[in-house]
Simulated scan of single mutants.
Amino acid sequence: MTNFQLMSKQNGFTVMEVLVAGFIMFLVIATTTLIYRGATLSSHKAERSIYINGLVPVMTDAIQLEIRQKGQASIDKLSGSGKMGEAAYSWKAEMIDFQAAPPQMLAEAGLAVEQNNRFKLWQVELDANYKDYDRQYRYVEFSWNLAP
Results as ranks from 00 to 15, higher is better:
T60F: 05
M25C: 13
S74V: 07
F4L: 15
S74N: 12
E86S: 03
W91I: 03
W91R: 07
A21D: 01
T32Q: 00
F98Y: 14
Q5C: 04
I67K: 14
G80P: 12
A87G: 05
A109Q: 12
W91N: 09
L146M: 15
V15I: 13
D134E: 13
D61L: 05
A21G: 00
I63V: 12
A101L: 04
M95N: 04
G22Q: 06
E108D: 02
F4S: 13
A93W: 10
A93N: 12
L78K: 11
R118A: 00
N129I: 04
Y137R: 02
V56M: 08
G38T: 13
I63L: 05
L55R: 05
I29H: 03
R48D: 07
L55K: 10
M84Y: 10
L78R: 07
S143A: 10
I35S: 01
N129P: 03
K92L: 10
N116C: 00
E94Y: 11
Y133T: 15
Y137N: 02
M7W: 15
Y89L: 07
Y139R: 02
I67R: 13
I63R: 09
K131M: 12
Q64T: 15
F142S: 11
T2R: 07
E114R: 02
A87L: 02
A88C: 02
K83L: 08
F23K: 00
G12T: 02
K9F: 15
M16C: 09
I52A: 12
A112G: 10
I29T: 10
K45Q: 08
